[in-house]
Write a protein that binds this DNA or RNA. Structure first.
Lengths: 199, 199
DNA sequence: TTACTTTTTGTAACAGTGTTAACTAATATG
DNA sequence: CATATTAGTTAACACTGTTACAAAAAGTAA
C-alpha cells in the first residue's frame, strides 16, 4: 500500500521544487523578482498549487528565514567548536557571523532587514544557544564593571551582537566592497576591543 | 509679471501636498500602504501629475530618506552643542540617535533598513559632519591601542555607529517594548563602556 | 468495467501595484 | 483671434498576491 506514501513523497517533492525555484529566482535576480507567478512558471504548475503548499508568500519567506537561522546557527557552532579559549571562541564566532552575512547576503537581508517579516526573529536568535552559551560565561567576568549590574547580561549580549549586526549592516549598505580586506581588520579590532574591554 | 512666480509657487505647493499626503499615509498605515494611486486620491489629482513632480516612487522615498538624514543630523548637532566634554558629547549624541530612531521609526526604517533604496545612504551619513567631527577627535586618543593603527579611525567610527545601529535594529526587530526603560540602561552601558574603552 | 468519490490541478477572475502613451483642456504669447 | 505651450486626464500595459470555481485525474467500490 505504498500508494499513499508515493503521494506524500510527490507532494514533498513539489514543495521542495517550489522552494528551490524560489531560491534560484532570488539568487539570480534578488528578492524583488520573487513572485508566485514566476515560481509557478518555473516549476511548471499553476498558481494555486503553490497556495496548497504555502499559506501565502510570507510563509515562503518565513521558510527561507528559518533556513537562514539554521545555517547561521550551524556556522556559529562549528566556529566555536574549533576553539578552546572563550575569547578565541568569541572571535571565531564573530568571524563566522561576518562571513555568513556576506556569503549569504540574501539570507541575512531577509533575516535582519528592518523590512519584511521580522516578527519572531528575536525568538529565533534566542534559540541560537551556541551564541549566548559562549557569550554569557565570558560576560559574567565583566559584570562588576557595569554601572547597572542587573542589566549587564543583557547589555553585553546586546552589545556583542549589535557590534556585529551594526558592522555588517553598515558595510552592506555601502555595498561596493563587501570583501574589502580593510573591513576584516575593522572587525578584528572591534571584537578584539570588545573582548579586551571585558577582561 | 508675477504670473510665472505664481505658477512656480503653485507647482511647489502641489509638490508639497504630494509629500504631505504620502507621509500621512505612511504614518497612518505604514510604508506598505504608500501607493501612487492613494497619493493621487488624497491630493485630488490624477496619477501622472505625481510623475511630473517625481521620476518614480523611489524618488519619493529618497526624498523622505533625505529629510530623515536632515532631521537626524540636526538632532545630533543640538545634542552635541549642549555638552562640553567630548565624552559627554558622545553620550548625548548616542541618546539623541536612540531617541530619533524610536520617535521616528518610519524614517529610521527607510534610512537604514536593509530593504529599500539604501544606495547612497553611506554618503549621506558621511555628510553628517557633526557625527564624525565629534567622534574622530575623541578617537585619536585611542589610536595607539589598536592593533591595526592604520584602520583605527575607521574602526572606532564604525564601532560607535555599529553599536548604535545594532542596538536600535535589534530592539526594533523585537518591537514590543521600544520604550522599555531597561533598554535605556543598556544603551547607557554600551556607550559608556565604549567611551571607557577609549580612555 | 462501470459508477461514484475524493484529491489534485487549471482557468479565470478580483483588486491592487508602478508606469506611460496619447489625448484634452486650460493658459499664456504673438 | 489664432497659435503654441503647459497642465491635467483617460485609459491602458504589465505586473503583483490571492481566491472562487470548474475540470480533470486518481483512487475506491460494486
Amino acid at each position: 500500500m505504498g500508494i499513499l506514501e508515493r503521494k506524500i513523497r510527490h507532494r514533498q517533492e513539489v514543495r521542495d521544487r517550489i522552494l528551490q525555484a524560489a531560491w534560484q529566482l532570488v539568487e539570480l535576480e534578488g528578492w524583488s523578482a520573487l513572485s508566485i507567478r514566476r515560481i509557478a512558471d518555473a516549476i511548471e504548475y499553476s498558481i494555486p498549487v503553490i497556495y496548497s503548499h504555502f499559506e501565502n508568500k510570507d510563509a515562503i519567506l518565513l521558510e527561507f528565514s528559518r533556513e537562514g537561522f539554521r545555517r547561521l546557527a550551524q556556522h556559529l557552532q562549528t566556529a566555536r567548536d574549533e576553539q578552546d579559549n572563550p575569547g578565541q571562541q568569541l572571535m571565531a564566532m564573530a568571524q563566522a557571523y561576518w562571513n555568513f552575512a556576506f556569503d549569504n547576503q540574501e539570507f541575512y537581508q531577509l533575516m535582519f532587514g528592518l523590512g519584511i517579516p521580522a516578527c519572531d526573529t528575536v525568538k529565533k536568535v534566542a534559540e541560537m544557544k551556541q551564541f549566548s552559551d559562549v557569550i554569557f560565561p565570558v560576560l559574567q567576568q565583566a559584570i562588576a564593571t557595569s554601572s547597572h549590574p542587573e542589566t549587564s547580561h543583557l547589555l553585553k549580549f546586546h552589545t556583542f551582537w549589535s557590534i556585529l549586526h551594526g558592522l555588517v549592516s553598515i558595510q552592506m549598505i555601502g555595498k561596493d566592497n563587501a570583501t574589502d580586506p580593510i573591513q576584516q581588520l575593522v572587525l578584528e579590532d572591534a571584537i578584539g576591543g570588545f573582548i579586551k574591554a571585558l577582561a
